[in-house]
């Protein structure tokens, strides 16, 4: 994702928004956490490619 303005780190290449080792309910919470991180990033003002921490609200 060269040059993407807002980046939130996912889990891994083969499972960006999930973790197959987790129980389904926990995995869905994780997925929601990453999605929330992405929504926070969409609201932020950036001037250059920026990596967001998904744990920070």
């Amino acid at each position: 994702m060269v040059g993407a303005p807002r980046v939130v780190q996912g889990v891994k290449i083969v499972n960006p928004m999930g973790n197959e080792e987790m129980a389904p309910a926990a995995e869905q919470r994780l997925r929601r956490e990453i999605a929330t991180g992405a929504l926070n990033a969409l609201q932020a003002e950036v001037t250059e490619p920026t990596l967001f921490d998904r744990h920070k609200a």
């Binding site: 928004m17 999930g18 869905q28 997925r31 999605a35």
Partner: peptide, 23 residues
């Protein structure tokens, strides 16, 4: 380009419809 077994098992791992519906 990648091992697709996990995303096939659960497509929400790529397109997180379940989480986004909650939100």
């Amino acid at each position: 380009g990648y091992a697709t077994v996990f995303t096939r098992q659960n497509p929400n791992r790529l397109i997180p419809v379940d989480a986004m519906r909650e939100i």
